[in-house]
């Protein structure tokens, strides 16, 4: 009996998988906003990659253009208050945003998924502790905690990422915990358990693949949140430190010159908004594609 169950468990590790992914892909392609957003984001990634090797000017070179000068042939997006090329800085800013956005979410997935799986699977005191911590975090302004953390750790790209992960892992953990709780009662998990599969195998071989859809959606929504966090910190001057530009700090620098050179603040503001929008539309699209029931 046990061996039969084991065979069954191995044969059907994840019931509705294959068709789910291809269906989801088809639905996603039909979502126009998500498609446009994906194209934009691919371009953004290319620009960020390009900026590793090439920017029109050195991003920190001052005085290469008249200060506050507006867009021109030589400087497509004009120059800032100390005569640096705004376009070059914008390209580096894209790098920073993407590193922070994607980097934090990779860590959040690792932390959140592990904590969520363990808490949901083992329940008991571990679950109580995790739930308690999550609830505490929900009750405090996470952005301000991140602010204090960066301030304590010292401003650097790594510390910003750490601060954001520390304050943003709970959504993922809570979601994965919920998925695990409901899935551990399903037949194919019980069959696997009955056949003596190790918990690690059950968690990562059976439960995780089935929770992958919601995890991807959650992480996609996490990216713009993280980018926003970084922009916020940098805007206040406790994030990315000069001369490295961040869209947040570029906007903050430009606001003082709003009257005479609005392009300085507009360029990073628009880039930031569109990027956040693209991730949110993509997240919406992924959610609708992976969970058709959530659609109206």
């Amino acid at each position: 009996m046990a061996t039969a169950a084991a065979v069954v468990a191995r044969e059907i590790p994840s019931p509705e998988q294959a068709s789910l992914w291809s269906d989801a892909w088809r639905r996603l392609r039909r979502n126009r906003m998500a498609l446009i957003s994906t194209i934009y984001l691919v371009l953004l990634v290319l620009v960020a990659l390009l900026a590793i090797f090439y920017t029109p000017y050195r991003m920190s070179a001052v005085g290469i253009a008249p200060t506050y000068s507006g867009p021109s042939q030589a400087h497509l997006l004009g120059a800032d208050g100390v005569g640096r090329d705004v376009l070059s800085r914008l390209m580096i800013g894209a790098q920073i945003s993407l590193i922070v956005g994607v980097g934090t979410q990779l860590l959040v997935v690792v932390v959140g998924v592990t904590v969520g799986l363990l808490a949901g699977y083992y329940r008991g005191w571990l679950d109580s502790v995790v739930t308690f911590i999550i609830n505490v975090f929900y009750g405090i302004p996470d952005l301000l905690v991140a602010l204090i953390l960066v301030f304590l750790l010292g401003p650097s790209l790594t510390n910003i990422i750490i601060a954001i992960v520390v304050t943003r892992w709970m959504d993922m953990a809570r979601m994965v915990r919920g998925q695990t709780l409901s899935m551990r009662e399903r037949e194919f998990i019980e069959a696997a358990r009955a056949s003596g599969a190790k918990p690690v195998k059950i968690l990562f071989g059976h439960i995780l693949p089935n929770a992958l859809g919601p995890i991807i959606v959650q992480a996609t929504f996490g990216v713009p949140a993280a980018i926003l966090f970084e922009a916020f910190l940098s805007f206040l001057g406790v994030g990315i430190q000069p001369p490295t530009p961040s869209w947040g700090s570029m906007a903050a620098d430009g606001i003082a010159a709003l009257r005479i050179a609005p392009h300085i603040v507009l360029a990073p503001s628009i880039a930031l908004s569109i990027t956040l929008m693209a991730f949110n539309f993509l997240g919406d699209g992924l959610r609708d594609a992976l969970d058709p029931r959530s659609r109206r």
């Binding site: 906003m33 713009p224 926003l228 922009a231 916020f232 805007f235 947040g248 906007a251 903050a252 606001i255 503001s269 628009i270 930031l272 908004s273 956040l276 929008m277 991730f279 949110n280 539309f281 919406d284």
Partner: peptide, 10 residues
């Protein structure tokens, strides 16, 4: 979506 994608400083 546009609304909640715009940072308040923007």
């Amino acid at each position: 979506v546009i609304g909640y994608s715009m940072p308040n400083f923007v």
